[in-house]
Simulated assay, not measured.
Amino acid sequence: MFDDEIIIALSKPVTIGKGEASISYHELKLREPTAGELEKATRADTSIGAAITLISLITAIPRTAVERISKRDLVAANNFLEGFTEPGQTAVEAGQS
Rank of each mutant, 00 (worst) to 15 (best):
G95C: 06
L28R: 14
G49C: 03
P33M: 11
R31H: 15
T90E: 03
I23Y: 04
S47V: 07
S11R: 14
I48M: 09
N78G: 02
E67W: 00
Q89K: 13
K12M: 10
T46I: 03
E27A: 13
P62V: 02
R63S: 05
L38C: 13
V14N: 10
A50I: 01
L38H: 13
I23R: 15
I48K: 13
G19W: 11
I52C: 02
G88A: 06
T85W: 03
A76G: 02
D4P: 02
S56Q: 02
A9Q: 15
E39R: 09
I16K: 09
G36F: 00
S97V: 03
T64W: 03
I16P: 12
G49M: 02
R68M: 14
S56D: 04
L10Q: 08
R31S: 15
G17L: 03
A76R: 15
I58G: 05
F80V: 07
T90P: 00
N78P: 00
A91K: 05
E39A: 14
G36E: 10
I6D: 05
A9D: 12
A21I: 03
T53W: 00
K29S: 12
H26W: 05
K12Y: 07
T90Y: 01
S11A: 14
S97C: 00
R43K: 15
T15I: 05
G19K: 11
G19H: 11
